[in-house]
């Protein structure tokens, strides 16, 4: 399978006609399938079932909704599953990585990976269940360096820790922020004043003390 993908990659050069810059590659209409086309969904489903054969213990459920295929998995072997999809099935583009809070369901969190194969033109979604206690999941930054900030944001907003992440810090919220804003039990207006606010107000010079 791996060789087959490699062959496909070789056949489809990255720059179709490199000699002239402005000339553009027009894909043949047969190849041009809508992401929600029935054919693409079927292909994605096939991949989902191969995934289930490969990881029978991890794949919980395969769902199809509006032509998009989701594979719900446990978080134990998420790195292996995604590595398999990337290297063996050619899903080279990590479109999106985000967290979802399904409180009070158990397991509470989900980390959602939207994958796309630029060469095969297929989309698949992997949803990894994460427990509330010990909310941890393997990082995929070594597979896709672009996942770095996605994972940081997910940590920032949900408090899910990514094992093996090179630089797991808050990204959008201040570093001394309390709580995880996108959790469902976090109120819209926030819980309390930002800690730094009082420090600034109460310090005599009006400057933040470090």
């Amino acid at each position: 399978m791996a060789q087959e993908i490699e062959r496909v990659l070789e056949e489809e050069p990255l720059a179709p006609q490199p000699s002239t810059f402005s000339s553009c590659h027009q894909p043949s209409t047969s190849f041009l399938c809508h992401s929600e086309g029935a054919k693409a969904t079927e292909e994605s489903l096939k991949i989902a079932f191969t995934l289930k054969e490969q990881f029978p213990g991890e794949v919980i459920e395969i769902k199809e909704f509006r032509g998009q295929v989701s594979v719900i998995v446990t978080s134990d072997k998420i790195r292996e599953i995604l590595a398999y999809l990337k290297e063996q099935q050619g899903f080279n583009h990590l479109q999106d990585l985000c967290g979802v809070d399904y409180a009070p369901e158990k397991p509470r969190f989900e980390v959602v990976y939207n994958l796309y194969s630029i060469w095969r033109r297929l989309h698949i979604r992997v949803r990894a269940k994460v427990e509330e206690e010990n909310a941890e999941i393997d990082s995929v930054t070594d597979l896709w360096p672009g996942a770095n900030w996605h994972e940081r944001e997910c940590f920032d907003m949900f408090g899910i820790r990514f094992i093996g992440h090179p630089d797991l810090r808050r990204i959008l919220m201040p570093e001394d922020w309390n709580g995880y804003p996108l959790r469902k039990d976090y109120p819209l207006k926030g819980k309390e004043l930002w800690i730094g606010f009082r420090e600034i107000i109460e310090s005599p010079s009006g400057e933040e003390k470090k």
Partner: peptide
């Protein structure tokens, strides 16, 4: 040089 345009791939 990557042919990735959603207008074409997922019209």
């Amino acid at each position: 040089g990557v042919y990735y345009d959603i207008r074409k791939l997922m019209p």
